[in-house]
């Protein structure tokens, strides 16, 4: 029975061996198998092709396939590191690994930096920060005048851009996060520690034992 499932799974595009994924991430083999259950659920919600399309990601996040959101787009793009427009299983597990409570803080800090570096310049530019604050205001009930938004961005930049060159580089970002650790709070998902309870995997457990 295990062999049958094993052969079947290898034919799924983007499927990767849980033991390899577990060796490269903070997850155990059982947790990777549980993540596969979650992955299957999300990746079959609209198009059942074993890949997570952006609409499926939006549906899983917002319960609405058409809800666009700048930050969800950025997360999707970072998960899709092959940049082929879909999230494969290996990409899903490796990316979520950063959000594991036991993942190195340095990985979380770097991931957040890449997330906010909207134009992939290697810096968080003032314009990008302004754009992100506007995007946040757009999705919330918080109404702030343009002047106030400018002041918030200016104040944050004066605190974070210690070299004063009008942009935040990775070193400045690391220093800024070390002074404001709450900034990467959303880079940790406690759920990932209980993933085997939330998504028990019965089929794959017959294949591999921890």
């Amino acid at each position: 029975m295990g062999c049958f499932h094993s052969k079947h799974l290898r034919q799924i595009p983007g499927y990767e061996d849980p033991t390899i994924l577990a060796s490269e991430t903070p997850f155990t083999v059982s947790e990777v198998e549980a993540l596969y259950e979650l992955f299957k659920k999300i990746s079959s919600s609209i198009i059942d092709d074993g890949l997570i399309h952006k609409e499926e990601f939006q549906l899983a996040l917002f319960r609405n396939r058409n809800r666009r959101n700048l930050f969800a787009d950025r997360i999707f793009d970072l998960f899709d590191y092959k940049r082929n427009g879909v999230i494969e299983f290996g990409e899903f597990v490796r990316s979520l690994g950063v959000f594991h409570p036991n993942a190195p803080t340095a990985d979380k800090v770097t991931f957040a930096f890449r997330l906010y570096d909207l134009r992939h310049t290697g810096y968080i530019e003032r314009e990008e920060l302004y754009e992100m604050v506007l995007a946040l205001l757009n999705e919330s009930d918080l109404a702030l005048s343009d002047d106030v938004v400018e002041m918030i961005v200016d104040k944050t930049f004066s605190d974070a851009d210690t070299k004063g060159d009008g942009r935040i580089d990775l070193d400045e970002w690391k220093e800024f996060v070390s002074k404001n650790p709450s900034l990467i709070k959303n880079m940790t998902l406690p759920y990932l520690k209980d993933i085997t309870l939330a998504f028990p995997s019965f089929v794959l457990n017959t294949e591999v034992e921890d």
Binding site: N69, R74, V133, L183, K185
Partner: peptide, 26 residues
């Protein structure tokens, strides 16, 4: 905090798009 003393990154980290916990809701 008054708006001008808010940290812009603190503000944007509250975005629903960055809250991946909803992926795990059944």
């Amino acid at each position: 905090a008054t708006p001008v003393t808010m940290n812009a990154f603190e503000l944007i980290s509250k975005s629903q798009g960055l809250n991946l916990s909803s992926l795990f809701e059944k």
